[in-house]
Write a protein that binds this DNA or RNA. Structure first.
Lengths: 110, 110
DNA sequence: TTTAAATATTCCCTTACAAGAATATTTAAT
DNA sequence: ATTAAATATTCTTGTAAGGGAATATTTAAA
């Protein structure tokens, strides 16, 4: 889940949300976020290395867009928590039972 | 998406993954992660304040478990990227067309 | 053929934050 | 009544990483 730490940075998260609506150049991204071009480039570099975005060079412009893979991965990871949001059966009860058993064993030793 | 920055810390991510399989005490978590109890407590505090986990006090034990809400939120956020992983239509083409139009306009002015 | 635009890179500085150590607090055990 | 176990909190320190400024590089424009 390297992706998560990369997206932890607010500007990078924002960039990703911008690109959700389609590709953009570095300048456009910097403008929309209200940050300097040089910072935008840096963040885009990190996003590139994490394979979250990819770039297409057109003359002196760089057009960035999202790559799907990492999002799919994140989705798979999140899927593994699906059982949690059935709040119905709460494993806490089970756990408490186990705890009680342990306590009883201890009691018997005495 | 506060959740993302909280989960960016490797130990916290690990804790969440541990709790996926059911509730655990602080001591158990610390043991599994191979970190000191004091660090585990700190990370659990952050996770609590982010409402990612909740705690049940039994005597001098604290049993932590996941809360579903934040995961649901993350899922909703991730849903908003679903259109991306249909790689079929790539908005890059559209963007390039727009660029070309701009270039032509410039050319005509000359 | 110089100048301007778009982007990337490097260096420095500052700040946020995780780890360590020590200690406090609550409850259980003896 | 003491001692031990489980957990939380506070203080300090070291470090990773983001922002600023300056500059390099590539391509377009005049």
């Amino acid at each position: 889940m390297k992706m998560i730490s990369v997206l932890a940075e607010p500007n990078r998260l924002h960039i990703v949300e911008l690109l959700r609506d389609g590709p953009l150049t570095v300048g456009e991204i910097a403008e929309q976020l209200g940050i300097r071009q040089t910072q935008a480039s840096k963040h885009l570099r990190v996003l590139s290395e994490a394979e979250i975005v990819e770039v297409t060079a057109i003359a002196n412009r760089r057009i960035y867009k999202l790559r799907p893979e990492r999002f799919k991965e994140l989705n798979t990871w999140l899927e593994s928590f699906r059982s949690i949001w059935d709040e119905r059966f709460d494993r806490l009860d089970d756990y408490l039972h186990k705890l009680q058993e342990k306590e009883k064993k201890h009691g018997n030793k005495k």
